[in-house]
Write a protein that binds this DNA or RNA. Structure first.
Lengths: 207, 207
DNA sequence: AAAAACTATGTGACAGTGTCACTTACATAG
DNA sequence: CTATGTAAGTGACACTGTCACATAGTTTTT
């Protein structure tokens, strides 16, 4: 994925309009039309899906150099977005209009490759989310999620953590508490300190 | 989707090798390498995902004229398949080798469009599955699923029905029973007869 | 045709999730 | 220092997913 030389991207940055968004800004929401193809230059975009009942799950993050499948899907199918996109950190991106997108896609093989690679990577992440949602043991899912972050402090609320996994705040709360009792993490208002990622990893993958 | 003239496809049928599979055959399984791009000519391919615990959900079906994202993703990323593909009905398909796929993609805009359209459609289906899995009320999900089929008899076991939704056989069993008590369906070994799709629809979308 | 061997279903118990309706703690703007 | 809003904890409870079997249709074998 990251073997895409960032220099190559520079050529496309010139093809579109610069776009900036502050931390936390909403870049798109369900119902919006996909108007432009987005390539992220800095910061990240957190893409979430919320179902009719209001339950939310994080699908993936679009980091610098990546593009967003949902956006591409919307451009290609003409359907509106089905999820939300929020800026994480100050985001700078390049927006390439639908028309230019289509002509680049038809003429530039390298651009095509860029788009496809992004597509393939995201589809993989979507199937990972499905895999994870099929597992109903939230404690195992949370343990694995925390283990993946590795040792260190996470500044996020229980609510945000719950949304990463597509579960409820109360459940995240209870589960974190049980992990703290075991000494694997230390929690306080608005933050979780991961102390023993290995223990969490082992717990998350236990039979 | 179906506005893709099937005549256009005929041109690509000549580019690859014919492939046939009987009803129920397994076309690919997790770990297999994506060796060729597949376009389905007749029959359908049911694509499923099974997580480590063995719980399975149907991701989507690839019908005549469609291609499979998982396959495309594998070809493009070089990673093995993450799901299963089974023939539903006698399947005939055309397999286009990875090399020819890449050269067609680079040279033929219409082929590109075909691939992209397939991609966009499947991604939409994947996000639908995620949407559905976020809803934990299995009775509502099952009601909606049945309502979508419309009136008529379905020849499938509880186990198969459960896998469509990514739930357990016992749960599907119980829930079907409760629908039968309400007179919405009639069940027997290996089949479900949908009597009142409207009632199921209403129940499935109730607050 | 009767027995054996499958395959599909039904059941009751139980742990664990998700939801509700509040309560309790922090944090910060006046 | 109080008010006001945001974050987190709680106990009760319905519902799912799982287990361990009990049953009941189907096919194969003798």
């Amino acid at each position: 994925m990251s073997d895409a030389p960032t220099q190559d991207l520079a050529a496309y940055f010139a093809q579109g309009d610069a776009l900036e968004a502050p931390d936390g800004a909403c870049l798109f929401r369900p119902g919006d039309e996909g108007r432009a193809f987005l390539i992220v230059k800095s910061g990240a975009v957190r893409v979430e899906q919320t179902n009719s009942a209001g339950r939310t799950v994080v699908l993936y993050r679009v980091e610098a150099g990546d593009s967003c499948v949902l956006t591409t899907t919307c451009l290609l199918s003409g359907k509106p977005y089905s999820g939300y996109g929020y800026a994480e950190g100050a985001v700078t991106a390049v927006a390439i209009s639908a028309n230019r997108f289509k002509s680049l896609l038809a003429s530039d093989n390298q651009f095509q490759e860029l788009v496809f690679r992004g597509f393939a990577a995201r589809v993989g992440e979507l199937t990972d989310v499905i895999d994870d949602l099929l597992e109903h043991r939230t404690d195992l899912r949370l343990a694995r999620w925390l283990a993946r972050r590795g040792k260190g402090q996470l500044r996020m609320t229980r609510q945000e953590l719950a949304q990463e996994l597509g579960t409820a705040r109360e459940v995240a709360s209870r589960t974190l508490k049980s992990f703290e009792r075991r000494g694997w993490i230390s929690i306080s208002r608005g933050s979780v300190d991961i102390l023993k990622p290995d223990a969490l990893e082992a717990y998350g993958n236990a039979l």
